[in-house]
Nucleic acid binder design. Structure first.
Lengths: 350, 350
DNA sequence: TTGTAGGCGTTATCAA
DNA sequence: TTGATAACGCCTACAA
């Protein structure tokens, strides 16, 4: 593979000039530039970015640490990051952590070993390096997109999960629902806790006893939504509204309700969170809270670019908007509160 | 940030010894090793992988090029790649191409610029560098996981989409279906074409006129499945079985059927492809063809490791198994074809 | 077993 | 505007 020296020889100039032609073409006389460009084309030369990075002391890589990629939210988030990374000439390294501390720390280590310039973190756990906060050396460039402990002052991007969740409850309350059950996400996640707080806040605001609301803990999977409803029904929790901490669980929950012969929304109104595309085509289409997934990734990457540019300045927080999407899975509360049976899920109008 | 020289000074040895301690600890006397390790710990030293790569002439990065990450199949595929990459000490770079030739070529360029050692490609397009096949310099290390033009001899991993699709048709045929419609994926993709061929092959094997089967082209999205069914119904294509080239379209198709008041499977049996997890919780649960998504990624990465180890040897093809998953969206063909409202079992499109 | 020294391919600092 | 040349941090013959 040709290197800068080969180009210099072929073009009859010094390697310094070739380097300049590459980085500051304006500083090279046009005829010289042309010779160099010809040589580059002829030898099909590509600068060795390892060497460039070694000299420039940066890699132009940003590592994105996510707990799992089996997740539409993650996909969208990564897509957003890619969008702005690409036009900034930054490569995105994907690190899957399984929420394993050692694994996450090893990815953070890639910053120290110059394989990446910074990290965007979408995980419930935090790197040891950040938690310990060694006072002398500054924390590595990290942007948070999920966990946000109060003590730390890292740049972060998020939505107001609390208010968004409260708005979902409010939507049900305004339809006359008073018995509202909740399926939470994994409660070791900050986001899940926030959404739960929001659901409870919504109940409280409506004057409903939030401490008596039936609450089941799920883990964001379809199966856990399904199981949660079975559990609620077995406990005879008599509810007409069901708030799920994400759409995937809501879809699982709807499957369980159908199986139990409970009509949606005539028997139970179901609302989800995230506006997954599958929700729109469910039976019936799912009412949900739309959160800006791609935009979250874009904002996170912009924050990272800021931070890389000026590590001190970028201590910011970005809060993105949310939006209620009403579809047919939610409707007026039945007058008599009893999960009736044998009604086939019917109808939808796009 | 500390470098190897700092360690050498602190440990009172030469940098060569430190380097050895890192790469071949056995070649260093234990007491010396201890001093070095102590120094490394004290200075919190991490080797600069850019410099290591420059010397060793490799990056230990593999780039994975995918058209989009908004796709459960892609997610699983990448997960599989990560699985085996991690234990091989290889980092995975994710490149999203949007199926854009220039973008893909720019990712391939990362191999020439030493940012990555090879590429795993899950896309319908191929790099210019591969297509042109410059006779002198060998093609860059690329593993194919989707497109597989006969002319090329790159390592590849895939499933037998043709036979798998035929098996789906056979499943319907054995239930007595004779009027079977097909929704294809984007036909510019090899995989879509294969699945279509397989559907047609299945019809032919059953003695059904495959050239008269109603066929609508979709693009693998929920919406396109929905639209396709509307189109079929509008054309009065009178079918009792519906083969979709992926689950996502099948779910969209089911939504459209429900909307039209057609029962599933009593009016129309629907089968999909991929065994998406959402299919199991659909209404009714979707019959589908399970393909080994994670395993495909794992196999692709193993092929890549082989290729990196010995570029000449690794000209192989791996074909992975598939499995029919029967759920409630498919059932016996109705004896009299009159699903719900407003539909006659006559006429056809193609 | 350890040390010396010459690259790996670039960039950047000086002079010229 | 161009050219020498010294880093960047590490690895690896080759010597000792």
């Amino acid at each position: 593979m040709a290197n800068i020296k080969d180009i210099a020889e072929l073009a009859q100039v010094s390697i310094a000039t070739v380097s300049r032609a590459l980085s500051t073409p304006g500083a090279v006389r046009p005829p010289t530039l042309q010779k160099i460009e010809a040589a580059i084309a002829q030898l099909n030369y590509r600068p060795n970015m390892l060497a460039v990075g070694l000299r420039r002391r940066r890699s132009d890589n940003v590592i994105v640490a996510v707990p799992s990629i089996f997740n539409p939210f993650t996909s969208a988030f990564v897509q957003g990051i890619e969008n702005v990374a690409r036009e900034a000439g930054i490569r995105v390294l994907l690190g899957i952590t399984d929420s394993d501390q050692a694994l996450l720390d090893s990815y953070v280590g890639m910053i120290a070993s110059k394989q990446a310039d910074g990290m965007i973190l979408l995980d419930k756990i935090l790197p040891t390096a950040v938690l310990q906060t060694p006072p002398e050396n500054p924390a590595p460039p990290i942007v948070l997109a999920c966990e946000y402990p109060p003590g730390l002052s890292l740049p972060r991007v998020r939505i107001d999960n609390v208010e968004a969740a409260a708005m979902l409850v409010n939507h049900l309350v305004r339809q006359g629902h008073t018995r509202i059950a909740v399926i939470t996400g994994p409660i070791d996640q900050n986001m899940s806790r926030d959404r739960l707080s929001g659901f409870l806040l919504g109940l409280k605001r409506a004057g409903l006893a939030s401490d008596k609301a039936p609450i089941v803990h799920g883990d964001f999977t379809l199966q856990s939504g399904y199981d949660a409803v079975r559990q609620l029904l077995a406990a005879k929790a008599g509810f007409t509204g069901l708030c799920c901490a994400n759409d995937e669980m809501a879809l699982g929950a709807m499957a369980a309700l159908r199986e139990a012969g409970i009509a949606i929304p005539d028997g139970v109104s179901v609302v989800g969170f995230d506006n997954l595309r599958f929700g729109a085509f469910a039976s019936p289409p799912l009412t949900t809270m739309e959160v800006p997934t791609v935009e979250t990734g874009e904002a996170a990457m912009r924050l990272m670019l800021d931070m890389l540019r000026d590590p001190l300045d970028a201590n910011r927080e970005i809060i993105l908007p949310y939006r209620l999407v009403v579809r047919q899975s939610s409707g007026p509360a039945p007058t008599a509160v009893k999960p009736g049976k044998a009604k086939k899920p019917r109808g939808q109008t796009s």
